[in-house]
Design a protein around this nucleic acid. Sequence first.
DNA 1: TCTCTCCATGTGATTTTATAACAATACGGA
DNA 2: TCCGTATTGTTATAAAATCACATGGAGAGA
Lengths: 170, 170
Amino acid sequence: MTRLPRAENTPPADPVGFETHDHRTCISAATKAAETQCKAEGLRFTPVRRKALEILLQEHRALGAYEMLDRLRDAGFGSQPPVAYRALEFLVTHGFAHKIERLNAFIACAHPGASHAPAFMICRECHSVAEAQSTRDTLGDAARSAGFRIERTVLEAEGLCPACTETADT
Amino acid sequence: MTRLPRAENTPPADPVGFETHDHRTCISAATKAAETQCKAEGLRFTPVRRKALEILLQEHRALGAYEMLDRLRDAGFGSQPPVAYRALEFLVTHGFAHKIERLNAFIACAHPGASHAPAFMICRECHSVAEAQSTRDTLGDAARSAGFRIERTVLEAEGLCPACTETADT
DNA sequence: TCTCTCCATGTGATTTTATAACAATACGGA
DNA sequence: TCCGTATTGTTATAAAATCACATGGAGAGA
């Protein structure tokens, strides 16, 4: 894939898993998958929502709501914040994307369809984000004994990605 | 996400651990402990910082920065946002408090001194927050194999606290 | 097909959360 | 005591998110 020009603090082109990855095809594949799931669940995969997902997949990094808004405007959609927030809310609600609370930013889900207790590794230096499968249930016992009913769990680990670790070490 | 208005939705008086707990004494105890730690580490436990910690301990819930600002102003400190943000940053940096990203709010640490990989249970209904010890290292393997160097980890579980579960069930 | 209803979209305005920048002051070590 | 640095207070502004309301389009049922 062609590496797009990078602005000030933009992560390396392909930070998912911090490894090289060809996603020429995965955009259309993931979009298709979302479309299928929406059809199955009776959800409306409207143009803005589709475009928003495509943008997230394209960028392949955590995108702020206002960055999303810019791109949606460029694509001919409305130019006010709710446009972006609504599309993103839809994607997050239905598991096509995640919000990285730490960054106030959104990223396409890297494991669509999988049971969702996502875990993220966030580089404090370049802001790249990797999504891991968080299989083990760290909090189950504590929750049970407290009588707390867990509905959703997000784990955000902050640190240094491989690339920035190298830079820091040298 | 639905964000209910704060006022109509104030957590029960004593939400830490979702259980009754007498903290008449624990405020002064925790403050004292912080003072000791600061002395040991050569940190300046100034009046604003002390007051901010006392407020968090007093409230015993997650407090927004601007709520904190109100209380600090009432206590005779400056009235501009940086006053609150700086005090909170100090407390968070040194482990006396945590930021709940999900709520953009801050809460006194419930396990001061303990090794810090805090885990929170956040009630989506009343916004009460409980802090658990997150002992197990859920992400270690994934991080190691990715070459990611974890520095800090926060786990935020959203759901229903015991009180709100009851209400919902009835 | 028509129409009714619901959901989605577009827009303007506002609220909430967070930082930048800089002057004045207090602290602690030489 | 003097000096450098951290801390505080303040003004101003940026960034993130929501409210409120008008308009439009898709799909269900008559």
